[in-house]
């Protein structure tokens, strides 16, 4: 399906800004509700994330002593902007992407990293020890998950022969689901996504029992709310990316909802099944296993393509 709307509407209302934020909050609810059900609890009500966000927005914002004020205030906005910009290049909700060009996959991936970078800077900006440790851990984790995640997303791109997300979407929609063709890539992508979003068991950067709330310990009110929204938007984008790349693409909204829900179930189950990994264990796992597997997958794809061309 194609959308021909005014660019401003695309940016601010649909599929950008407002819509994406609301969807993000709904995703957070689904996440918390499913985890609660896995833990044999009832879980939050459907409007919980909305109430949380409105409350945080209405709360007093304390700027601690000794921080760079402008940075303290600007970082949440940068993080959110990064995530929202990335959304513009993704065929969200079954509609075609608002903007696209050859190679937008790379832009999206780097826009998504803005979040982590902002969190890292926010942590380093405040003087509290917990935030500094949180920031170090967040950045360390970024260095470890980025490569395997990228590799896992690259192999479908190579298979499709394009770096344009929209074209990859049509390619995966027409061919066999890539989860069957490249199962290793799928596993690496899902786990990499969880690492990217700092979901348990990869939540060492914000491990509550060790460093309170990690890099965001000193944020209150508005800043915290914006970071929360930003994270949720990232969750939406990440899941959509994996669905596009590995679950046969999305052609219409119904397909989008069904496939995202299925993937969500897997991600939440993984979240509640494991003990938190230490940061060194995360890094070790990623570089030893994740990157290697992603690389193997990539090599297999390249080799396969080469072979196919020879045979042809």
């Amino acid at each position: 399906m194609n959308l021909s709307l005014h660019p401003l509407i695309l940016l601010l209302i649909f599929p950008g800004g407002l819509f994406l934020m609301n969807i993000g909050l709904l995703y957070e609810w689904a996440d918390r509700k499913l985890v609660a059900r896995f833990q044999s609890r009832v879980g939050p009500r459907w409007f919980q994330p909305f109430a949380d966000t409105i409350k945080l927005l209405a709360k007093e914002e304390i700027i601690p002593n000794g921080v760079h004020k402008i940075m303290f205030l600007a970082l949440p906005i940068i993080a959110l902007t990064g995530a929202l910009t990335a959304a513009q290049y993704i065929p969200m909700f079954g509609f075609e992407a608002s903007f696209s060009f050859e190679g937008d996959l790379i832009v999206v991936l780097y826009m998504l990293s803005m979040m982590t970078l902002s969190i890292g800077l926010a942590g380093a900006n405040t003087l509290s020890r917990f935030t500094i440790i949180g920031a170090t851990r967040a950045l360390t984790q970024m260095f470890s998950y980025e490569a395997p995640f990228l590799l896992a997303l690259l192999s479908p791109a190579i298979a499709a022969g394009t770096w344009n997300i929209g074209k990859i979407n049509t390619f995966t929609g027409e061919n066999i689901w890539l989860i069957l063709a490249q199962p290793i890539g799928f596993i690496v992508a899902v786990v990499g996504l969880m690492g990217k979003l700092e979901l348990p068991p990869f939540d060492a950067p914000e491990a509550e029992t060790e460093i309170v709330a990690g890099a965001l310990t000193e944020y209150s009110g508005r800043g915290l709310a914006l970071f929360h929204i930003g994270k949720n938007v990232e969750l939406v984008i990440g899941l959509t990316l994996v669905v596009i790349f590995y679950l046969g693409g999305i052609a219409n909204p119904i397909e989008f909802i069904l496939k995202s829900a299925g993937l969500f179930l897997v991600v939440t189950a993984l979240q509640s099944m494991f003990a938190r990994l230490r940061i060194d264990q995360t890094v070790g796992l990623w570089w030893r296993l994740g990157a290697l597997m992603g690389l193997l997958q990539l090599l297999a794809i390249i080799f396969g393509r080469y072979l196919g061309e020879i045979l042809r």
């Binding site: 896995f38 044999s40 494991f274």
Partner: peptide
């Protein structure tokens, strides 16, 4: 083993929550 808890997770998802 990895994911020993899986059986219980599935059970919890399809039974009524323990909440009063």
């Amino acid at each position: 083993a990895i994911g020993v808890l899986f059986g219980d997770l599935v059970k919890a998802l399809f039974t009524k929550p323990a909440t009063q």
